[in-house]
Amino acid sequence: MRQIVAIFTRSGGILVFLILEVICLSLVVTFNKDQREIYHNSRSIISDSMTHGWGEITQYWNLSAVNDSLSGVIAELKQQQDEAKFLKTIKQDSAKYSGEDYEQQYTYTSAKVVSNTINLPNNFLTLDRGIRDGINTRMGVFDNRGIIGIVIRSNDRYSQVMSILHRDSKISAKVSRLNAFGTLVWTSVGNPKLMELKYIPKHLNPKIGDIIQTSGASSYFPGGLPIGKIKEIEEDPQGGNFHSIKVELFNDLSTTQYVYIVNNLFKDDFKEIEEGNENE
């Protein structure tokens, strides 16, 4: 008790000052019209801007969760599009096709890139989805702007993707304007933006700037996914019958974070018929 008294006598002035000043100012904003209005306006401005600022901060905290859920939603939506489906009945009038005539051909799963290389001659990515999520080998991987690679291994939780930046990677692609099929390979080691499209015959006339898409002629990717555009057309130095086309990729594999894994439900049928063809 004596200590409290001592504290009060030493700093009682400040204490009484603060208490009385608070009382005075609350009286000011309670009983004076002008001051009350100014006080309420300023308070609402301050609290508005604080809520706003706080909202912006928490928005950033939530951003990665939002991304995760959005990529899941996108995968879901891709699955519902007609492009992901297979027409199982054939009718004379195409306008009469309804939902029942389609069978799901492709399913999509969103995934996050866990690790990634681009600087080696053979590059791989690791994704955070595995067998538990229905991911298995021989599935295509792409993102919003281009293709990424093909799943080659997976365990319960993770799967490994052979990047398109791999010397053995061969992707069936087409020049969309000409509908000309070729094979996309990576020859420019060290440049993750540049690939080469082979086997476009000389009699076709691709132009610089033409869009390259997936052809749909493989079991990995549905047709029509964007890949890149023609940057340069060289004559084959060996004087062959094909153009040598440099393709600049739309996507940048060095910054890829969110990808979609596409599963072709018919790939076994496809493989069976293709391989049977070879065996003959």
Binding site: S26, V28, V29
Partner: peptide
Amino acid sequence: GMAIDIFYTSYGVHASATVFLAF
């Protein structure tokens, strides 16, 4: 300050200033 405020009907305005002055 409050005595003055009562006559000025500006409760708290003079009082806050005189409290500050006394401080």
